[in-house]
Amino acid sequence: MESLEAVDFIGSELKITLNDGRILQGVLLALDSKPNLLINNCSETSIQRGHTNCRDLGLVSVPNDTIQSVEMKGEELDKAVKWKPAQ
């Protein structure tokens, strides 16, 4: 994983847990050095009145200070790592 660079995460589908508990899922379009993330086709999952609510938000910018954790599919990450040395 250490062989990867920031650009290698572009286009990956990420699951971002926010500090307020909401979960965002979508495709990473851009990031900066903070990193603030720009996520496309973003869906938001939250718990409202005891029910899980899922909705579409489209293009979303996620400031770094709102992010608790970022996850990625293991399979997709493996592919990115394998592809990297072959470059």
Binding site: M1, L4, A6, I10, A30, L31, S33, K73
Partner: peptide, 27 residues
């Protein structure tokens, strides 16, 4: 998406720090 998820928070933050301050890495 829940199964086989890997936490990449730290690595993403580390790698992002290598990006120049005023630069944006994008598709």
């Amino acid at each position: 998406m829940s199964e086989q998820m890997v936490d990449i928070t730290d690595v993403l933050r580390r790698k992002a720090r290598e990006v120049a301050n005023d630069a944006v890495v994008k598709s």
